[in-house]
Simulated scan of single mutants.
Amino acid sequence: MGNQRKTWFITGASQGIGLILAKQLLAAGYNVAATARNADTLRKAVDNDTPQFLPLQVNLVDEKSVGEAVNKAIAQFGGIDYLVNNAGFGLIGGIEETTDAEVRNSFDINVFGLLNVTRAVLPHMRAAQSGHIFNMSSVFGLISGGGWGVYCGTKFAVEGITEALAQEVKPFGIHVTIAEPGYVRTNFLSSGSIAHPAHPIAAYVALEEERRKHREDVPGTQVGDPEKVAAAIISLSQMIEPPLRVLMGSDALQFANYKIQLLQEGIAANKAMTLSTDFS
């Protein structure tokens, strides 16, 4: 079956990894249905007027909007073979600093939007008895740090949801993969993809430094190459038995190994207490 018969559905494709992935796929001859908050921005960014490309303006937190987009993609291309839940944004703020509305907005896009799209696509994949879902997490879905609690909380949620999803859909021939990049050199930190609390608290000096560092020092120094991340996702789609999760980037590997070390040390240090809570 040629690439022309394979269709990808990508959320958050107007910039960053989503945009690069869409361009690589179109260049390779795949069909691409891509979503963004603004279809005109997406259309200009991708710059491809062929019938292979379907730009879709979607509100990911609106199930009706998501369902209509999925139906349009299927009507044009006949099905959806690969889903990439890529849309999301970061939030740098302390737990006390962030408001209920700010936290809910983060979960709405990063978690509930992902669920909306997944639920809309799955009936078609189940009917086809095939498909591959990629959920873009982060190594910060494995480890958290000060200032990133809410963002990491959304990615921890994506990890847990995806682990369960992989087990649920395996009988239908559907694969699921969690992508866990480290820092990738896109405009993620310098665009509208990073939010800050409206009411920062001056007492949290370290959190303000974290925001400054990610605004001034980190952009342009990220070790991750977004072109290679996109290419890796395409390579994963071609595997007969793709992995459940893949770390992407040397920094991601370092963070993950550090988390493993912390877990192992903590488990060993508290083993007596752990075993003491069983019935005698």
Rank of each mutant, 00 (worst) to 15 (best):
I161G: 11
S14Q: 03
R185G: 12
A157R: 08
A268Y: 12
G18E: 06
V246P: 03
I17T: 01
L26G: 09
L142R: 14
D100E: 13
Y82E: 01
D217A: 15
V58N: 04
M248R: 00
K259G: 08
P219Q: 08
F89E: 03
Y151W: 05
I143T: 13
P51R: 07
I10M: 01
D225F: 11
G182C: 14
G173H: 13
Q15S: 15
Y204D: 07
H132A: 05
A33Y: 01
G145I: 00
Q261A: 13
G16A: 10
D278P: 00
T221N: 10
V103K: 03
L262F: 12
L244M: 12
I240P: 03
I260G: 06
N38D: 15
K44P: 09
L114C: 08
G67L: 12
A256S: 05
G182A: 13
F112G: 07
F255Y: 07
V176I: 11
S193R: 14
N38L: 13
I267L: 15
I161Q: 15
I194R: 13
A127P: 04
Y204C: 08
Y151V: 04
N85G: 06
N105L: 09
Q4M: 13
R215W: 14
S190R: 13
F172M: 14
L25Q: 12
A232I: 10
G29I: 01
A33C: 00
G90V: 04
I194S: 11
D47W: 02
A157N: 10
E97F: 03
A13Q: 00
L114S: 03
G16H: 08
N71Y: 01
F134V: 10
T11G: 00
H214A: 03
A28G: 05
Q238L: 09
A127Y: 06
E241Y: 06
L91I: 06
G266S: 14
G93H: 02
N270V: 05
A75S: 14
L275V: 12
G94A: 09
M239I: 10
R37K: 11
R37D: 03
L60N: 02
F53S: 03
E210M: 13
Y204H: 11
V70H: 08
P51S: 12
F107S: 01
R212G: 07
T50I: 03
T11D: 00
Q254D: 05
G192S: 15
L26T: 05
G94R: 00
Q222M: 15
N85C: 07
R119E: 14
I74C: 02
L21H: 04
T154I: 09
G94K: 00
R5S: 05
R211N: 05
P200L: 05
D62T: 09
A22M: 03
A36G: 08
K213T: 13
T11K: 00
I161V: 15
R185C: 11
F172L: 08
R119S: 15
K64W: 06
Q76Y: 00
W148D: 01
Q254S: 11
L21P: 03
V139N: 10
V103R: 06
D62I: 04
F9I: 01
F134K: 01
L263G: 08
L25W: 07
H124E: 15
L253V: 12
G113M: 02
A256M: 04
